[in-house]
Protein backbone atom coordinates (compact mmCIF):
# COMPACT_ATOMS: atom_id res chain seq x y z
CA UNK A 1 0.00 0.00 0.00
CA UNK A 2 1.34 3.37 -1.05
CA UNK A 3 1.98 5.82 1.75
CA UNK A 4 0.17 8.45 -0.29
CA UNK A 5 -3.07 6.71 0.59
CA UNK A 6 -2.36 7.50 4.23
CA UNK A 7 -1.25 11.11 3.83
CA UNK A 8 -2.84 12.78 6.86
CA UNK A 9 -2.68 16.29 5.46
CA UNK A 10 -4.53 15.27 2.32
CA UNK A 11 -7.13 13.39 4.28
CA UNK A 12 -7.73 16.36 6.55
CA UNK A 13 -8.07 18.73 3.62
CA UNK A 14 -10.53 16.46 1.89
CA UNK A 15 -12.63 15.54 4.88
CA UNK A 16 -12.64 18.52 7.19
CA UNK A 17 -14.54 21.18 5.18
CA UNK A 18 -17.50 18.88 4.61
CA UNK A 19 -17.50 17.45 8.11
CA UNK A 20 -17.20 20.88 9.71
CA UNK A 21 -20.18 22.14 7.78
CA UNK A 22 -22.14 19.06 8.84
CA UNK A 23 -21.10 19.62 12.43
CA UNK A 24 -22.21 23.25 12.33
CA UNK A 25 -25.56 22.75 10.69
CA UNK A 26 -26.56 19.22 11.69
CA UNK A 27 -24.62 17.76 14.61
CA UNK A 28 -24.61 20.86 16.80
CA UNK A 29 -28.39 21.36 16.65
CA UNK A 30 -28.98 17.65 17.29
CA UNK A 31 -26.89 17.81 20.45
CA UNK A 32 -28.66 20.99 21.57
CA UNK A 33 -31.91 19.24 20.79
CA UNK A 34 -30.98 16.21 22.88
CA UNK A 35 -30.16 18.45 25.83
CA UNK A 36 -33.41 20.36 25.50
CA UNK A 37 -35.46 17.19 25.40
CA UNK A 38 -35.04 16.90 29.17
CA UNK A 39 -36.55 20.28 29.99
CA UNK A 40 -39.88 21.97 29.92
CA UNK A 41 -39.40 25.18 27.99
CA UNK A 42 -41.59 27.48 25.89
CA UNK A 43 -38.67 28.63 23.76
CA UNK A 44 -38.01 31.67 25.91
CA UNK A 45 -38.20 32.43 29.61
CA UNK A 46 -37.31 29.88 32.25
CA UNK A 47 -36.32 26.28 31.58
CA UNK A 48 -37.43 23.61 33.98
CA UNK A 49 -35.54 20.32 34.02
CA UNK A 50 -37.98 17.43 34.10
CA UNK A 51 -35.84 14.36 33.45
CA UNK A 52 -37.45 11.76 31.25
CA UNK A 53 -40.98 13.15 31.55
CA UNK A 54 -41.10 14.23 27.91
CA UNK A 55 -40.20 10.73 26.79
CA UNK A 56 -42.75 9.14 29.09
CA UNK A 57 -45.32 11.50 27.66
CA UNK A 58 -44.52 10.44 24.12
CA UNK A 59 -45.37 6.86 24.99
CA UNK A 60 -48.86 7.95 25.99
CA UNK A 61 -49.46 10.51 23.27
CA UNK A 62 -52.04 9.15 20.80
CA UNK A 63 -51.24 11.82 18.18
CA UNK A 64 -47.60 10.76 18.21
CA UNK A 65 -48.60 7.18 17.49
CA UNK A 66 -51.05 8.30 14.86
CA UNK A 67 -48.30 10.25 13.14
CA UNK A 68 -45.98 7.24 13.31
CA UNK A 69 -48.61 5.00 11.79
CA UNK A 70 -49.25 7.54 9.02
CA UNK A 71 -45.53 7.62 8.27
CA UNK A 72 -45.51 3.85 7.95
CA UNK A 73 -48.56 3.91 5.71
CA UNK A 74 -46.77 6.41 3.51
CA UNK A 75 -43.60 4.30 3.47
CA UNK A 76 -45.64 1.25 2.57
CA UNK A 77 -47.45 3.00 -0.26
CA UNK A 78 -44.35 4.57 -1.75
CA UNK A 79 -42.17 1.50 -1.38
CA UNK A 80 -44.69 -0.98 -2.72
CA UNK A 81 -47.18 0.80 -4.96
CA UNK A 82 -45.20 3.70 -6.30
CA UNK A 83 -42.18 1.51 -6.88
CA UNK A 84 -44.07 -1.30 -8.55
CA UNK A 85 -45.87 1.03 -10.90
CA UNK A 86 -42.71 2.97 -11.63
CA UNK A 87 -40.83 -0.25 -12.28
CA UNK A 88 -43.47 -1.66 -14.62
CA UNK A 89 -43.66 1.59 -16.54
CA UNK A 90 -39.89 1.83 -16.73
CA UNK A 91 -39.87 -1.70 -18.09
CA UNK A 92 -42.33 -0.83 -20.84
CA UNK A 93 -40.64 2.46 -21.60
CA UNK A 94 -37.38 0.63 -22.15
CA UNK A 95 -39.10 -1.45 -24.81
CA UNK A 96 -40.99 1.07 -26.94
CA UNK A 97 -38.14 2.74 -28.75
CA UNK A 98 -35.96 5.61 -27.77
CA UNK A 99 -37.93 8.45 -29.28
CA UNK A 100 -41.27 7.62 -27.69
CA UNK A 101 -39.77 6.72 -24.37
CA UNK A 102 -37.91 10.03 -24.30
CA UNK A 103 -41.13 11.96 -24.77
CA UNK A 104 -42.94 10.07 -22.04
CA UNK A 105 -40.06 10.24 -19.60
CA UNK A 106 -39.73 13.96 -20.14
CA UNK A 107 -43.40 14.44 -19.35
CA UNK A 108 -43.42 12.13 -16.36
CA UNK A 109 -40.56 13.98 -14.77
CA UNK A 110 -42.10 17.45 -15.03
CA UNK A 111 -43.80 17.37 -11.60
CA UNK A 112 -40.47 16.51 -9.99
CA UNK A 113 -38.98 19.74 -11.24
CA UNK A 114 -41.72 21.86 -9.70
CA UNK A 115 -41.30 23.53 -6.38
CA UNK A 116 -43.05 21.75 -3.54
CA UNK A 117 -44.88 24.94 -2.68
CA UNK A 118 -46.25 25.14 -6.22
CA UNK A 119 -47.24 21.48 -6.26
CA UNK A 120 -49.02 21.74 -2.94
CA UNK A 121 -50.88 24.89 -3.86
CA UNK A 122 -51.83 23.36 -7.17
CA UNK A 123 -53.35 20.26 -5.62
CA UNK A 124 -55.04 22.10 -2.78
CA UNK A 125 -56.80 24.00 -5.53
CA UNK A 126 -57.61 20.87 -7.50
CA UNK A 127 -59.10 19.27 -4.39
CA UNK A 128 -61.04 22.40 -3.43
CA UNK A 129 -64.71 21.43 -3.14
CA UNK A 130 -66.16 24.61 -4.59
CA UNK A 131 -64.00 25.45 -7.59
CA UNK A 132 -61.53 22.54 -7.75
CA UNK A 133 -60.81 20.55 -10.86
CA UNK A 134 -61.57 17.14 -9.42
CA UNK A 135 -65.13 17.86 -8.39
CA UNK A 136 -65.74 19.53 -11.73
CA UNK A 137 -64.56 16.42 -13.55
CA UNK A 138 -66.84 14.27 -11.41
CA UNK A 139 -69.74 16.58 -12.21
CA UNK A 140 -69.01 16.37 -15.94
CA UNK A 141 -69.04 12.60 -16.01
CA UNK A 142 -72.17 12.39 -13.94
CA UNK A 143 -70.60 11.23 -10.72
CA UNK A 144 -71.78 14.13 -8.56
CA UNK A 145 -72.40 11.69 -5.77
CA UNK A 146 -68.66 11.18 -5.45
CA UNK A 147 -67.99 14.88 -5.03
CA UNK A 148 -66.10 15.57 -1.91
CA UNK A 149 -64.17 17.94 0.21
CA UNK A 150 -61.18 15.76 -0.56
CA UNK A 151 -58.76 17.23 1.94
CA UNK A 152 -61.44 18.08 4.46
CA UNK A 153 -63.02 14.68 4.84
CA UNK A 154 -61.58 12.26 7.37
CA UNK A 155 -61.94 9.31 5.04
CA UNK A 156 -60.22 10.84 2.02
CA UNK A 157 -57.73 13.31 3.48
CA UNK A 158 -54.87 10.88 4.03
CA UNK A 159 -55.33 9.31 0.62
CA UNK A 160 -55.40 12.71 -1.06
CA UNK A 161 -52.25 13.85 0.71
CA UNK A 162 -50.42 10.65 -0.22
CA UNK A 163 -51.59 11.07 -3.78
CA UNK A 164 -49.93 14.51 -3.96
CA UNK A 165 -46.69 13.07 -2.61
CA UNK A 166 -46.72 10.30 -5.16
CA UNK A 167 -47.69 12.59 -8.01
CA UNK A 168 -44.52 14.54 -7.42
CA UNK A 169 -42.24 11.67 -6.39
CA UNK A 170 -43.27 9.22 -9.08
CA UNK A 171 -41.04 10.79 -11.75
CA UNK A 172 -37.94 10.21 -9.67
CA UNK A 173 -38.64 6.54 -9.10
CA UNK A 174 -39.44 5.99 -12.76
CA UNK A 175 -36.29 7.70 -13.87
CA UNK A 176 -34.12 5.71 -11.49
CA UNK A 177 -35.60 2.41 -12.62
CA UNK A 178 -35.41 3.32 -16.26
CA UNK A 179 -31.76 4.29 -16.04
CA UNK A 180 -31.12 1.08 -14.14
CA UNK A 181 -32.87 -1.14 -16.63
CA UNK A 182 -31.15 0.33 -19.68
CA UNK A 183 -27.73 -0.21 -18.16
CA UNK A 184 -28.27 -3.97 -18.03
CA UNK A 185 -25.78 -5.24 -20.63
CA UNK A 186 -27.32 -6.79 -23.73
CA UNK A 187 -25.10 -9.87 -23.36
CA UNK A 188 -26.87 -10.71 -20.10
CA UNK A 189 -30.28 -10.51 -21.78
CA UNK A 190 -29.09 -12.54 -24.74
CA UNK A 191 -27.57 -15.18 -22.53
CA UNK A 192 -30.81 -15.46 -20.61
CA UNK A 193 -32.80 -15.81 -23.82
CA UNK A 194 -30.49 -18.55 -25.02
CA UNK A 195 -31.16 -20.32 -21.72
CA UNK A 196 -34.84 -20.19 -22.63
CA UNK A 197 -35.89 -17.62 -20.11
CA UNK A 198 -39.26 -16.00 -20.73
CA UNK A 199 -39.94 -12.35 -20.03
CA UNK A 200 -40.94 -12.90 -16.44
CA UNK A 201 -37.87 -14.91 -15.49
CA UNK A 202 -35.70 -12.49 -17.46
CA UNK A 203 -36.83 -9.75 -15.13
CA UNK A 204 -36.86 -11.67 -11.86
CA UNK A 205 -33.58 -13.54 -12.47
CA UNK A 206 -31.46 -11.12 -14.45
CA UNK A 207 -32.66 -7.54 -14.40
CA UNK A 208 -33.88 -7.11 -10.83
CA UNK A 209 -30.72 -8.58 -9.29
CA UNK A 210 -28.64 -6.44 -11.60
CA UNK A 211 -30.31 -3.22 -10.54
CA UNK A 212 -30.39 -4.08 -6.83
CA UNK A 213 -28.25 -1.04 -5.93
CA UNK A 214 -30.82 1.18 -7.62
CA UNK A 215 -33.63 -0.47 -5.72
CA UNK A 216 -31.77 0.00 -2.48
CA UNK A 217 -31.11 3.65 -3.25
CA UNK A 218 -34.78 4.25 -4.08
CA UNK A 219 -36.03 2.50 -0.99
CA UNK A 220 -33.70 4.46 1.26
CA UNK A 221 -34.82 7.68 -0.40
CA UNK A 222 -38.48 6.63 -0.04
CA UNK A 223 -38.11 5.81 3.63
CA UNK A 224 -36.15 8.88 4.63
CA UNK A 225 -38.29 11.23 2.59
CA UNK A 226 -41.48 9.67 3.98
CA UNK A 227 -40.14 10.23 7.47
CA UNK A 228 -39.20 13.79 6.68
CA UNK A 229 -42.47 14.61 4.94
CA UNK A 230 -43.58 17.92 6.34
CA UNK A 231 -43.77 20.99 4.12
CA UNK A 232 -46.46 19.61 1.88
CA UNK A 233 -48.74 18.76 4.77
CA UNK A 234 -47.90 21.98 6.58
CA UNK A 235 -49.11 23.87 3.51
CA UNK A 236 -52.17 21.74 2.76
CA UNK A 237 -54.04 20.21 5.69
CA UNK A 238 -51.70 21.10 8.57
CA UNK A 239 -52.36 17.59 9.85
CA UNK A 240 -56.14 17.80 9.78
CA UNK A 241 -58.96 17.12 9.84
CA UNK A 242 -58.33 16.11 13.44
CA UNK A 243 -55.07 14.22 13.34
CA UNK A 244 -55.96 12.30 10.18
CA UNK A 245 -52.98 13.50 8.19
CA UNK A 246 -50.56 14.12 11.03
CA UNK A 247 -46.99 13.12 10.20
CA UNK A 248 -44.02 12.87 12.51
CA UNK A 249 -41.94 15.75 11.18
CA UNK A 250 -44.92 18.09 11.11
CA UNK A 251 -45.98 17.03 14.57
CA UNK A 252 -42.66 17.85 16.14
CA UNK A 253 -42.64 21.19 14.34
CA UNK A 254 -46.13 21.98 15.62
CA UNK A 255 -45.31 20.98 19.18
CA UNK A 256 -42.28 23.25 19.19
CA UNK A 257 -43.60 26.23 17.27
CA UNK A 258 -47.36 26.18 17.69
CA UNK A 259 -47.80 24.76 21.16
CA UNK A 260 -44.53 26.33 22.39
CA UNK A 261 -43.70 23.00 24.03
CA UNK A 262 -40.18 23.21 22.92
CA UNK A 263 -38.81 20.50 25.19
CA UNK A 264 -41.48 18.06 24.14
CA UNK A 265 -40.91 18.83 20.46
CA UNK A 266 -37.25 18.06 20.94
CA UNK A 267 -37.94 14.77 22.66
CA UNK A 268 -40.03 13.79 19.63
CA UNK A 269 -37.22 14.72 17.29
CA UNK A 270 -34.72 12.65 19.26
CA UNK A 271 -37.01 9.65 18.88
CA UNK A 272 -37.41 10.57 15.24
CA UNK A 273 -33.66 10.56 14.58
CA UNK A 274 -33.26 7.23 16.34
CA UNK A 275 -36.12 5.75 14.32
CA UNK A 276 -34.83 7.07 11.01
CA UNK A 277 -31.32 5.88 11.75
CA UNK A 278 -32.47 2.40 12.72
CA UNK A 279 -34.62 2.07 9.62
CA UNK A 280 -31.79 3.14 7.34
CA UNK A 281 -29.37 0.72 8.95
CA UNK A 282 -31.96 -2.06 8.68
CA UNK A 283 -32.47 -1.45 4.99
CA UNK A 284 -28.76 -1.36 4.36
CA UNK A 285 -28.27 -4.58 6.32
CA UNK A 286 -31.02 -6.29 4.37
CA UNK A 287 -29.47 -5.30 1.11
CA UNK A 288 -25.88 -5.81 2.23
CA UNK A 289 -26.38 -9.56 1.87
CA UNK A 290 -27.07 -9.05 -1.80
CA UNK A 291 -24.37 -6.56 -2.65
CA UNK A 292 -20.99 -5.63 -1.41
CA UNK A 293 -20.73 -2.07 -2.60
CA UNK A 294 -22.38 1.00 -1.04
Amino acid sequence: MQSQFKDKKVIATLVLPGIIIMLIAIAAPIIISLGLSFVKWTGFGKMKPIGFDNYLRIAKDPIFWKSISNVFILIFVTVFFQNTIAFILAMYLSNIGKKLSNIFRTIYFIPATLSLVVVTKLWVNIFNPSYGLLNKILAQIGLESLQHAWLGNTSTALGSVIWIIIWQGFGWALLFYYSGIVTVPDELREAAKVDGANKFTLYTRIIIPYIMPVIQAIIIIDVTSSLKQMEMIYLSTAGGPGDTTQFLALYLYQRAFKYSEYGYGNAISVIFVILAFTLTILIRKTFAKRLESL
Binding site: N128, P129, S130, H148, A149, W150, L151, G152, N153, A157, S236, T237, A238, G240, P241, G242
Partner: peptide
Amino acid sequence: FQENLTTSDYGDARNA
Protein backbone atom coordinates in the same frame (compact mmCIF):
# COMPACT_ATOMS: atom_id res chain seq x y z
CA PHE B 1 -70.96 25.10 7.02
CA GLN B 2 -68.71 24.48 4.04
CA GLU B 3 -67.89 20.82 3.52
CA ASN B 4 -64.17 21.25 4.13
CA LEU B 5 -64.72 23.44 7.18
CA THR B 6 -61.74 22.23 9.19
CA THR B 7 -59.19 22.35 6.38
CA SER B 8 -60.22 25.54 4.62
CA ASP B 9 -58.39 28.61 5.76
CA TYR B 10 -59.15 32.26 6.23
CA GLY B 11 -58.61 33.16 2.58
CA ASP B 12 -60.81 30.29 1.39
CA ALA B 13 -63.68 31.30 3.60
CA ARG B 14 -63.41 34.98 2.84
CA ASN B 15 -63.24 34.36 -0.90
CA ALA B 16 -66.15 31.97 -0.97
